[in-house]
Design a protein around this nucleic acid. Sequence first.
DNA 1: CCATCGATTGAGACCGGTCTCAACATTTAA
DNA 2: TTAAATGTTGAGACCGGTCTCAATCGATGG
Lengths: 355, 355
Amino acid sequence: MAKDQGLRRPATVQDVANLAEVSKATAARALGQYGAVSARVMTKVTAAAAALGYLPNDLARTMTTGRSGTIGVIVGDIENPYFGLAVRGVSDGAKARGFNVVLVNSGEDVAEEKAALEVLVRKQIDGFIIAPAASGDTAHLLNIATIGRPVVLMDREIPALGFDAVVLDDKAAAKRATELLIAAGHTRLSYITAAGMKQHTLCDATGIGLSTVANRIAGFSEALADAGIPDPHRYIRFGVTDRQGAQHVIADLLNLSDRPTAILASDSLIALAILRTTKDVRLIIPRDISLISFHDADWTSATTPSVTVVAQPAYDLGREVVSMLIERIEGLAEPPRRRELPTRLIERESVSAPK
Amino acid sequence: MAKDQGLRRPATVQDVANLAEVSKATAARALGQYGAVSARVMTKVTAAAAALGYLPNDLARTMTTGRSGTIGVIVGDIENPYFGLAVRGVSDGAKARGFNVVLVNSGEDVAEEKAALEVLVRKQIDGFIIAPAASGDTAHLLNIATIGRPVVLMDREIPALGFDAVVLDDKAAAKRATELLIAAGHTRLSYITAAGMKQHTLCDATGIGLSTVANRIAGFSEALADAGIPDPHRYIRFGVTDRQGAQHVIADLLNLSDRPTAILASDSLIALAILRTTKDVRLIIPRDISLISFHDADWTSATTPSVTVVAQPAYDLGREVVSMLIERIEGLAEPPRRRELPTRLIERESVSAPK
DNA sequence: CCATCGATTGAGACCGGTCTCAACATTTAA
DNA sequence: TTAAATGTTGAGACCGGTCTCAATCGATGG
């Protein structure tokens, strides 16, 4: 056998066919396990393929079959552990059913989301899983549907679009957490969220860009209203996205003369910023301020104090989403489905009565 | 205009050509910005493309050009914040140069790594960025090279393969950190790492699967040797991968009658497990035990005590790796290059003198 | 012994782009 | 005014698979 370790053109079906002394069509049938092939030919072709180190070209296959076996996932921020976990759920579920995953970060930006979507469409992706950056500007999402590729929304829903969606029980979760704080005796409660809005404070509740945020604020407000606490929106803060901004907004909040005595954080990144800032201004949790965070990030149980959290089944969310998407890809034609997953409040050490 | 919002076959170059009343070849030239096209035709074709909502089929393009504009990244665990950040560096760098990224998790398993590699090859990826799961079983990595697609190793190197690699100064980092602990007065020092080996303790230093681990242990041991501390391998622990195992190994270590008084953790996940376990067994950091962790994870500065860390330029690592890979993709033919990025010790509150 | 049927096989079109090459148009130079 | 050069365009092959369809093979049955 000649030494041919050098760079050689990858083997094609034709090469295998030649070596096995059959036609290209027959070799393709044997390699692609479709059509009928005699046992003798099968072994010959298999041997030839092995000898040449043949690997099929998935692009060529997709070209004719129209199916890429790949699903696209667009998330705002994979570094957010919540989405990180959800994405792993998606990956695992996809892998189990023979699909691959392409992941794109949108940076919570609609323009980038649109660009990402376009890239994926051009790559002939079979279907999409999207945690949309905003529920306002959605023309690009509708376009996808027109092309005939299924979309399932993850974590955030936009009912008007008529897509399948898997979400969490955000309103109930927020209400439950808020009630826990109220039960501890708090009356000055704050909710801090990363998600959109130009300004940081709430003027009117309309035009909230994300279903999750809207729902949580609804639950938060409802709990306050039930307890007869006035002006529920007073300590709500928006758009706390980057680390800089977070420190700022939180510091401002904590410097108020009648500062809140309890904070509900919309994700673990915000909770972290709160931890850092309270440390800076020498406030102690939970003595000076109580904290509950959305998402049971791994560090929340290891800190002192450990933090009380709304545990979200992020991994299951991912599994569920991908399984719904694959059903659609395989032809399911039902009206849009909506699934809501329950969260669970885990009480730890970061909540106590106000001073 | 007729209502045709329904599912319609996506427009092709041929469709655009028909509408613009030019040949397919001309339309393709206009759309793909290659060859020469008159201004008049250009506008006609552009208009037709817009009218039809034409989006090119990247697979077809790759089919003939042989370039997919996509690079594949294979990492052991994206949920490890260190790799998460590195991957973001890769993504950003790739996007800036017009490349897309496909990310695959290997779960630090060689078989999965091999499978992932195969999938990517079949998708005609232009090049690979790999943090190899082991430096022993590497036949599959060599195969890739034979196919003629460039590979750059990230974080972990395997010189024998002759690939480009970007790594950190692990040995120096470990030595520096260890010296800090020794300077504080510690003589019973432990190093705990997630990476491979069946057993948890070290018999002989040969056969350590990962360059990072080997280098760090070398630095760690050298510092101990320089200080005249005997039996440097005594408190070294391996294979602390899952959360369960971590708690176990660490608890065992802390229950030793002559337990170590200082621990160097190989990543932030391990540091977290240490935090959790010390909390469980009611040891206080740094009073009872000092801690230094590799990777400046975001939470390490927010905890009480904040933790002293070896800050790794993970994002820059990703940027550097992707830029080297793209150079190769674009034809650079030089002998394998190796780049080493410096780390930085950030002193915080988790180190003090032993009791 | 020949017709019939199902199982295999090969030839060639096709997917949607790119690219080569020849034909034609328009200038420019002589 | 004509030859040469440059600019544009169209026809058709090609990438590496899949798939349709007709041809061939062997076996079965009358």
